[in-house]
Simulated assay, not measured.
Amino acid sequence: MARASAHPMQGLVKYHGLKDPVKRIPYHGSISVCTDPLESITSVEFHEGEHDQLEIDGNLISGRAFERVVAVLDKVRELSETTERAIVHSKNSFPQGVGLGSSSSGFAALALAAFEDSGADYDMKLVSETARLGSGSACRAVTGGISEWITDDSGSYSIQIGAPEDFKDWSIVVPLVESITVTEKAHEEVETSPLFKARLDYIEKTLCQMKDAVENKEVEKIWKLAEQDTRNLHAVTMTGNEGLFAWNAATAEIIHRTTELREEFPVYYSIDTGATPYLNTYREHEKQLISEFRETHGVTDILVCSVGGPAKIL
């Protein structure tokens, strides 16, 4: 048996939509940052059984979530030339269903543990490509820190472009807000939005700006670009055929108050496909943000994160 851990991620320049939903190949590149101490810990044990088995947070899983896990396991089996089935146990240190990217950390840890237990030769690029088959964002959770998802002639994978130790003053305050938006549904909807072509036109320049900001360690520029991309992404989501609206009253209140607080100190919001905002600021302002949003109606808890590292074997 092998065990691995990985951190979920906050999208900075977020990916939206898959031009190949089976292989999970995106329409465009993306950049994210992993959020420590949040983590998924996953164990994989290959054995001579008849079926794969998946348990997440103590619950046996079937349906679409199970199928996505099998896609990753099948790729590892193919590369390790085995037909053995797997017993998978995964546990998250943070809530699911609130837009914190549990699939990214879960599939990153799954792919790494599966390769380790299979005995196959692997490197982190291969782990990243394989984790992507379960969740696109998982490829970036494999490499950790600030990572870029690249699709080129050699594959679709992630590389780390910013190390955690270079961003020690970055604090990520997360007021948890429940959401009912299904990420896969949002990705399926992108081409129906009249704004999606505009997003594709805008994305390359934004990726270049974000990479420059990361290279130069300009954290406030990173935060500002992430907030800008949030508005762009959700405009596409809201204007698809289904009119998916991930935000709720608490999300809107936090957005408005964050904008007001910016008059006092640097703080920027960033929201992935769900309703929970990430508030990017300096460590010295953590307590003020916690105090500000602790009593907000609809906020179930407040987490405080820092920039996390890559997936690792335990």
Rank of each mutant, 00 (worst) to 15 (best):
D20C: 11
V22M: 09
F196S: 06
T296K: 12
E220F: 07
S102N: 12
E191I: 09
G17K: 04
P266W: 11
L100R: 10
Q228I: 13
P95Y: 06
T230A: 00
W149S: 02
I31A: 09
Q10G: 10
S147E: 00
V299N: 08
Y202Q: 11
C139F: 01
G274A: 04
A275G: 02
Q160N: 15
E284M: 11
H256G: 04
G63W: 02
D212S: 15
A6G: 10
H187S: 08
I87N: 09
T130Y: 11
E178D: 14
Y157D: 11
S93Q: 02
A113P: 00
V76T: 09
T239V: 03
R199H: 08
K221L: 11
A246W: 05
L176N: 11
L79F: 08
I313F: 01
M238N: 12
S62W: 04
G144K: 10
V182Y: 04
I150A: 06
F46M: 09
L110G: 05
L54A: 08
D121L: 12
G145H: 09
E263V: 06
I222M: 14
H51V: 11
S105L: 10
P21H: 10
N59W: 01
I87H: 03
K91V: 12
S103M: 11
F107K: 05
H47G: 13
A86M: 06
S62M: 00
L314S: 04
V182D: 14
Q10C: 14
K125D: 05
H285P: 00
E260F: 07
S90D: 01
V304M: 08
L110M: 05
I254A: 03
A311V: 08
P266C: 13
R283F: 03
N280C: 13
Y15G: 02
V267M: 10
D36Q: 13
F167H: 11
K221W: 03
R283W: 04
W223H: 07
C139R: 04
N232H: 10
L261P: 03
A114S: 13
E220W: 06
A114I: 06
V307E: 05
R3H: 05
I302T: 07
N216D: 13
D123P: 06
I41Y: 00
A250T: 01
S105C: 08
E218M: 07
E253R: 13
Y122N: 07
H89N: 15
M210Q: 12
S43I: 11
R132C: 11
A186N: 02
F46G: 10
G308L: 07
V127W: 10
V214G: 09
V70F: 04
E184P: 01
V173Y: 08
F293P: 00
V214H: 08
G145E: 05
H256V: 10
I161P: 15
F115Q: 08
S93Y: 01
V72H: 02
L12F: 01
